[in-house]
């Protein structure tokens, strides 16, 4: 992990393709094995939202001080339009870590593979990740990457800036924030408080379409598969039934419904 102080920053952003968390809960299905969410027509694949915030954080640093942004994604299968989105937003390169073995990793395995890929990339100053993935909501892999690489880790940032060889970030707290800093190379996880990610431009989409990702398998990374054995095993995955039997208040028109709602809540002594 050589750090280049002489050139612009090398930023790596880790992103994950996930089932759309905005899809209605009723569209989700559990697959037959009872251990994962099944592909379902009502649930499309998207880039994890917090990862888009991380891409935006990287682009803001690049806008301010220059830099090169490499996007890193891990999985067994990818939708090109999903994983290429960061390129269309303005990132420079895409590295896909693709292997059948990567289909069933826990946070430990995920962090291990990503840290090996980072070692192979070699020269980087800053690693940015979303604060958590909206599928398993683990918020663990970024901490693991930093642990395995022995680099500083700052979580849940709403602002990330670099100043010489130092990263300065605002870490979201309940009722405020904390300003922290660390020597680079360092890892920072980004939260939605950073602000909305930019839209891809037409030109960006066309450039992204032409770019060929670099693809590395487990063998390319020299990963011993025994090290990827799950430390956390899924016994059961289920969709809780939520139906509170909503009492729908229906008046003559919307205004009347509003009035009747207030009366009904008073009846229940709720107001």
């Amino acid at each position: 992990m050589a750090v280049r102080r002489d050139a612009v920053a090398n930023i790596i952003v880790c992103v994950k393709q996930v089932p759309d968390p905005e899809a209605p809960p009723s569209a989700f299905r559990i697959d037959d094995g009872g251990k994962r969410i099944a592909d379902s027509p009502g649930v499309s694949s998207v880039l994890n939202g917090f990862d888009e915030n991380a891409v935006e954080a990287a682009l803001r640093i690049k806008d301010a001080a220059g830099g090169r942004i490499t996007v890193l994604s891990l999985g067994s299968a990818f939708a090109a339009d999903v994983v290429k989105k960061p390129l269309s937003m303005g990132a420079d390169d895409l590295v896909l870590l693709q292997d059948e073995t990567f289909d069933d990793l826990d946070s430990y395995g995920t962090a291990l593979v990503l840290s090996e890929a980072l070692k192979r990339i070699g020269e980087f100053d800053l690693v940015l990740c979303g604060r958590q993935a909206s599928d398993w909501d683990n918020a663990q892999a970024p901490l693991g990457i930093a642990e395995l690489l022995g680099i500083p880790c700052i979580t849940v940032a709403q602002k990330v800036e670099i100043n010489g060889g130092v990263v300065v970030a605002e870490r979201v707290l309940s009722g405020g924030y904390e300003v922290v800093e660390a020597d680079m190379p360092a890892l920072v996880t980004v939260s939605n408080e950073l602000g909305e990610p930019r839209y891809p431009t037409l030109r960006g989409i066309m450039t992204a379409g032409r770019k060929q990702p670099t693809v590395w398998s487990a063998d390319d990374l020299g990963i011993d598969r025994a090290r990827l054995e799950r430390r956390i095993r899924i016994m059961d995955l289920f969709l809780p039934v939520r139906d509170r039997q909503c009492e729908v208040i229906q008046g003559e028109d919307d205004a009347d419904s509003g009035r009747l709602l207030a009366l009904r809540l008073r009846e229940e002594k709720l107001i």
């Binding site: 968390p21 599928d135 398993w136 054995e229 799950r230 956390i232 095993r233 016994m235 995955l237 289920f238």
Partner: peptide, 16 residues
């Protein structure tokens, strides 16, 4: 027992 997929699903997990 932990909520996953934002709470859309629940998972029971165990340890090695």
């Amino acid at each position: 027992t932990r909520p996953v997929y934002g709470g859309t699903a629940m998972a029971k997990v165990t340890f090695g």
